[in-house]
Design a binder for these strands. Structure first.
Length: 935
RNA sequence: GCAGGGGUGGCAGAGCCUGGCCAAAUGCGACGGGCUUAGGACCCGCUUCCUUUAGUGGAUGCAAGAGUUCAAAUCUCUUCCCCUGCACCA
């Protein structure tokens, strides 16, 4: 058993002592890599290893490739989670306490966690410790927390710049809202962490006949407004008549309670449902329509009043039919507003009810099913038939008609909570509140968007298949609310009552790493915008800036140099879940604020981590704290499993079994390294050349893989395949000390990015005194890669397999093991003929070749050749060209006869087909000798 | 609904871009054997079906269906299914 823990702490101390990972300006090319900084409100678990570990693998690889690498780390304290944490802790939230217990947070610490800053600092220390133990090659000197005042100075500069470019705009904005606590609520503030999903909907106003008032109906399908035959209310609901924006409006009492957070509602007076039923409204065509009782109308949904379109809505149709059955509403007939080309439904709603195998008397579920079917079909295929919109696709008409109605003040927009009910943690139902005067970053700005799209072309995205998601995100992102009423962070310069929202203050913070260690002790008031504009944009000169701000000339100059040096060749790493917000905003802000040469060069996204096949979650209790993982399994093993266990885009799976597999293989390699001294070095044999060929091929493929961040392929090549190759080498009686040493030395370096501690240990076990972590990445000698030698070895395996099969059959007859096996290698003329067929996939090619009577086939029996060629018929598609000649084949079998006979347990001999008297001789093919077993 | 990613053998997971060395790598599991007092570890074999008591043969097969091709897991089209995101939340 390898002492991973001892090895890891030893090398971590050595690296630290040698200051191996401190990034300092040099004349080498720079490589600047950042991973999205962690939120310090909990310790890390092994899932976090995915992103940071991936970043570290790249940092380490690039270092070995000779680049001057800077890999810094900081912490994101901005926003509400830490405040929420403090609040939950104060209330002794049992879930939170359990979670913290699982992470081994001591009780006495919990008592001290009343101050948000204390909480942040505690977890900053905790996370940093975990990252160090994971072996990340981080330059810790640049560490900061995003709620530190000097960082705020930087963010203030950023927002000043955004404002100068007119990217900050003000407007209305809907948010989930708790009426009890008077707070905006996001997913983290609701029971069961439900996101309050807000949707914009159209509410159509229908004038009440003989009154200066309206009934308000919320609808998903404003385009069907021309098919309205009546309105529906719920006989048992309570209704009110109130004043909205100066107009008199009827709606359900429940709706008025909810909508008052987004509309100016006053003077409510109760109206009995029976009263509602006696009124008539004016339809789109100016004719009066009745208000009827709808069995399906829910007072909690929308406004409690529904516009009825029996032609296109199965519920409306059913309600009308049921009324008709009782003798009401007999004069109502459906009005079609659209049709699906090729489908000639008289009443579409009825047609879909039939499709759902029901009718107007169906259950709610059945009618719901019909509704979904109809909605889907009509959205996809529907074309409008009503005047003014003829032929227009339904989805287009939906937007057009809604816009037209609003323009004619016949409708208004409402925000509705889609997934009601959502409850705040305090127990109250969440509503939608429309906030006025909300500040936004306008990512919808056309010019900015275009420029960002242009910039995106220059960014390398890994894995490449996530590129499309980025394109979609860049297109889609629009207004982004930027100011929040509560939370930690930087005050919004244009309105200091608000705090800058946490994703918005982390879009260009990577630049801050280049100077954080230099300005940490600079007086806050000196960190003026001019200073940042000089450092990041080169505006002004150091003398002037120093004088203006009071910052030492030397510091000003060093900041600029540091930024200029590091901020060129940048790589950004994060989880796939951040494509649609952080990463897209990262690109946008760079484009807006920095010079083109500072724009992102590479973005890498990775999936998450499953624990024993399940998503890690508190309720499942399968979260493995990072420290626990390291304690139990070691950093190297979990690094390997989590980071290299799946391709970048997929979730990787953490399991004890996988860890065990890696452990066994590393142990296998390590044992070989320690036994090397006892191995002699003799003349190179076939199998030695084979191992060299495999090694050099591996160096090429592993380098390509890691360069493309195909980490699974890289890991498979350097560990899994290596073990298979070494096993085969030893099975084949390979025993050359020099060859194995070369192989293992290269492996140590190839493994260094992913299992840095073990690689370091291996490297030193081989007698080296340098650090593997900063050694030169191995380069392949392409001349040592030999297809011929590898295919000969493959051939040998094939021969042995075939022989075993033959022996197995023979044993049934003879009842004993064979005394000897004779191989008969295919006649010389078979190779060109086989290759001709393999190359062209046509028998004809061989026939042509034989007819043309070339030098190599002279003197052989044409009839036999033709027979052989024809016999290849069925194998045409699987035949492969071979470079292995009959002489090679003879030699291989002779040289390997000891090996073959050790496996088969009998004597082995070989002869040429030309010399053979065996009846089986003609069965020989190139690479597949005939087999004659003797008993 | 919109957008993105997927569907491969008992399971996980390569292969797909660049069609043919693909009955499909590798690992796990199952099974048989060796080793062992036993278990673990390790080693060997096997893991679609049929055929063959001298072999490397055949059939079916990579979500379903159709197409292109001498040739399809791989290319094209259609359908079905699964996962993720959809904003003020880090």
């Amino acid at each position: 058993m390898i002492d991973y823990k001892g090895i890891e702490s030893k090398w971590q101390a050595e690296w630290e002592k040698a200051r191996l990972f401190e990034g300092n300006i040099s004349d080498k090319e720079s490589y600047f890599i950042t991973v999205a900084f962690p939120y310090p409100n909990a310790p890390q678990h092994i899932g976090h290893l995915r992103a940071y570990g991936t970043g570290d693998v790249i940092a380490r690889y690039k270092r070995m490739k000779g680049l001057n690498v800077l890999f810094p780390m900081a912490f994101h304290g901005t926003g509400t989670p830490i405040l929420a944490f403090a609040k939950r802790l104060k209330n002794n939230d049992p879930d939170l306490i359990n979670e913290l217990k699982m992470f081994h947070v001591p009780d006495e610490e919990l008592k001290k966690m009343t101050d948000p800053l204390y909480i942040a600092n505690y977890f900053v220390a905790e996370i940093e410790n975990g990252m160090r133990r994971a072996g990340y090659s981080i330059d810790w000197r640049r560490k900061f927390v995003s709620i530190e005042p000097f960082f705020s100075k930087f963010i203030e500069w950023q927002f000043k710049m955004l404002n100068e470019k007119n990217y900050l705009v003000k407007g209305r904005h809907p948010v989930g809202w708790c009426p009890n606590e008077n707070n905006a609520v996001g997913m983290h503030d609701t029971k069961h962490d439900v996101e309050p999903e807000i949707e914009k909907q159209t509410a159509v106003k229908f004038k009440v006949e003989g009154e200066e008032s309206y009934m308000l109906c919320v609808t998903y399908r404003p385009e069907t407004v021309y098919g309205v035959t009546n309105l529906f209310v719920n006989e048992e609901a309570e209704y009110v008549k109130c004043t909205i924006n100066g107009e008199s409006i009827y709606l359900s009492k429940a709706a008025s309670e909810v909508l008052k957070y987004q509309l100016d509602i006053s003077q409510a007076e109760d109206v009995a449902p029976q009263e509602m039923l006696q009124k008539r409204c004016i339809g789109m065509d100016g004719k009066a329509i009745p208000v009827l009782s709808g069995f399906f109308v829910d007072k909690e949904i929308g406004t409690g009043i529904v516009m009825s379109v029996p032609a296109h809505a199965p519920f409306d149709y059913s309600a009308i039919e049921r009324l008709k059955a009782k003798g009401y509403a007999t004069d109502i007939s459906p009005i079609k507003v659209l049709e699906i080309p090729g489908k000639d439904y008289e009443i579409p709603a009825l047609a879909y009810l039939k499709m759902a195998q029901t009718d107007a008397n169906g259950t709610m579920e059945e009618i719901e099913k019909a509704t979904k079917l109809e909605y889907r079909d009509e959205s996809h295929l529907g074309k409008m038939t009503i005047k003014g919109y003829e032929g227009m696709p339904e989805t287009e008409a939906r937007e057009r008609i809604a816009a037209d109605l609003i323009k004619g003040s016949k409708a208004m927009e409402l925000y509705i909570l889609v997934n009601i009910p959502v409850y705040c943690r305090c127990g109250y139902g969440v509503v939608v509140k429309v906030v006025d005067n909300q500040w936004f970053i306008n990512y919808g700005d056309k010019e900015w968007k275009e420029k960002t799209k242009e910039a995106f072309k220059g960014i390398r995205i890994l894995p490449p298949k996530s590129r499309k998601a980025f394109e979609a995100a860049i297109d889609w992102i629009d207004l982004r609310a930027v100011a929040r009423a509560q939370g930690l962070g930087t005050r919004f310069p244009l309105d200091p009552n608000y705090i800058i929202e946490s994703l918005s203050d982390s879009t260009i913070y990577m630049a801050f790493y280049t100077i954080s260690h230099l300005i940490r002790n600079v007086k806050l008031e000196s960190l003026k915008p001019e200073f940042f504009s000089y450092v990041f944009l080169g505006e002004g000169n150091p003398e002037e800036i120093s004088k203006l701000t009071g910052i030492d000339y030397d510091i000003v100059k060093r900041c600029k140099e540091s930024f200029d040096y590091w901020y060129l060749n940048t790589s950004r790493h994060s989880g796939v879940d951040l494509i649609f917000n952080h990463l897209t905003m990262y690109i946008y802000n760079h484009v807006a604020l920095l010079e083109q040469k500072r724009w992102p060069k590479q973005i890498v996204v990775n999936g998450s981590v499953l624990s024993e096949g399940e998503k890690m979650s508190k309720s499942l209790g399968n979260i493995v704290p990072l420290i626990d993982g390291i304690e139990k399994y070691s950093a190297d093993l979990i690094r390997f499993v989590v980071v290299a266990g799946a391709d970048l885009f997929s979730d990787s799976e953490f399991s004890a079994d996988a860890v065990k597999g890696v452990d066994e293989r590393l142990t296998f390699v390590y044992d070989i390294a320690r036994k090397l001294d006892s191995m002699e070095s003799t003349e190179l044999t076939h199998i030695d050349y084979w191992l060299y060929s495999k090694l050099n091929r591996k160096i090429i493929s592993a380098s390509e893989s890691i360069e493309q961040l195909e980490l699974r392929a890289y890991a498979t090549a350097v560990l899994y395949d290596s073990v298979l190759e070494l096993r085969r080498y030893f099975n084949r009686k390979g025993a050359n000390g020099i060859v194995v040493r070369d192989y293992v030395s290269a492996l140590a370096l190839l493994l260094s990015p992913i299992t840095p501690h073990m690689a370091e240990e291996l490297w030193h076990a081989l007698g080296n005194s340098t650090f593997a972590s900063v050694e030169k990445w191995p380069t392949a000698n392409p001349e040592m890669v030999s297809d011929r030698i590898e295919s000969e070895e493959g051939m040998l395996d094939g021969i042995i397999d075939d022989t075993k099969a033959v022996i197995e059959l023979m044993k049934r007859k003879h009842g004993s093991d064979p005394k000897s096996v004779r191989y008969i290698t295919a006649a010389k003329w078979k190779m060109p003929i086989t290759n001709a067929v393999a190359g062209s996939k046509k028998i004809g090619a061989a026939v042509e070749l034989i007819k043309s009577d070339p030098e190599e086939l002279k003197g052989f029996d044409k009839g036999r050749m033709m027979a052989y060629a024809t016999g290849l018929g069925k194998k045409v598609n699987s035949l492969q060209k071979t470079e292995v000649t009959q002489d090679d084949e003879m030699k291989l079998i002779v040289e390997s006869s000891a090996y073959i006979s050790s496996i088969l347990n009998c004597e082995v001999s070989v002869e040429r087909e030309e010399d053979s008297k065996s009846a089986r001789a003609s069965a020989a093919m190139p690479g597949r000798p005939a087999i004659e077993a003797e008993f």
